[in-house]
């Protein structure tokens, strides 16, 4: 705090000419114009359009301003289904991915001999295209020829219709979703682990503990800020689940249109006769959900930090 104060005081003393005040703005201008045109303007537009009933984007005509689109969307059974699917997806993908990533990152951090192999393995999804990998997963999920069912058959489990049965399509999507966010999560957690001073592990061993107890009592708490960060980022990105559907289900929302997600719903409003108002209000509902959840997570984190204090 005091450091920042010192800096401010310093800038107060520096004499700034008018030109040098404008100069930074000039440097910022291209970037700011880009943001204004391509981000801020569309966002404001979406908010405005979400309140325009029967909006026609060609004529820019609308019947009246009101909550009609929101009422329409929130009472739409497909939207409710999309919302519930999305929640289930997020609630499965994020915690499972976090736990797996934690285990992998911890193993990597202990400098196993397999580190080289692991490194390739966890960088792979980062350098491959989502769609190409998605297609690969489609082959792996294949009921008769896929490698997943092959391994299951070794355990004497009958073939599973991952991509063809309604009840197995969500698990397939979740597995693919987890695989997608794992590399990012592992890398961040690994970075977090590497910034933990190893002397704490030594201290814990001298204090008499080992193995899993050190992991849960020392490693995880010291990593909590990083875990929180990956959880928030992963939650936000998982709420936007959409791209993942295409390679797995050939552009459909699941084998029987049973896997509507919120973003897929928004996308579908634009297909055929575009219903821009409805799409905009659905997008804002999603935004509200993500916003509230993120705030909640930050709140929990703060509580968590303080509770350590007894």
């Amino acid at each position: 705090m005091s450091k920042r104060g010192d800096l401010e005081r310093q800038t107060d003393y520096t004499q700034t000419s008018r030109l040098s005040k404008i100069e930074p703005l000039l440097y910022l201008a291209p970037f700011m114009i880009g943001i204004l045109v391509f981000t801020l303007y569309p966002v404001v537009n979406v908010v405005v359009i979400s309140f325009m009933e029967d909006y026609n984007y060609l004529t820019r005509a609308f019947s009246r301003l009101g909550l009609g689109n929101y009422i329409n969307v929130l009472s739409n059974k497909y939207f409710i289904q999309a919302l519930s699917n999305t929640f289930i997806y997020v609630l499965l993908v994020v915690p499972i991915a976090t736990v797996i990533a934690l285990a992998v990152a911890n193993t990597l951090n202990q400098k196993l001999k397999l580190a080289g192999l692991f490194q390739t393995a966890y960088f792979l999804p980062m350098v491959t295209s989502v769609t190409a990998v998605g297609l690969a997963w489609r082959f792996m999920f294949n009921e008769r020829l896929g490698i997943i069912n092959f391994f299951l058959s070794l355990l004497r489990i009958d073939p599973v219709g991952w991509l063809t049965k309604a009840e197995w399509s969500m698990p397939a999507l979740v597995i693919y979703g987890i695989w997608n966010i794992l590399p990012f999560t592992i890398i961040l957690l690994l970075a977090g682990l590497q910034s933990v001073n190893p002397m704490f592990y030594t201290a814990a061993r001298v204090d008499g503990s080992k193995g899993l107890r050190i992991f849960f009592r020392i490693t995880v708490p010291l990593l909590a800020p990083t875990i929180m960060l990956t959880t928030i980022v992963n939650t936000i990105s998982s709420f936007k689940v959409f791209n993942e559907l295409f390679p797995l289900f050939k552009g459909q929302a699941g084998p029987f249109y049973n896997l509507y997600t919120v973003v897929y719903f928004i996308y579908e409003q634009m297909a055929g006769k575009p219903r821009l108002g409805r799409a905009a209000s659905a997008a804002l509902v999603l935004f509200a959900v993500i916003f509230i959840l993120t705030m909640l997570q930050l709140l929990i984190q703060r509580r968590w930090n303080r509770s350590g204090r007894m």
Binding site: N197, M199, T202, R309
Partner: peptide
Amino acid sequence: FQNYALYPHMT
């Protein structure tokens, strides 16, 4: 330890 190594997340 030389720099004490108190667990920072514990009271």
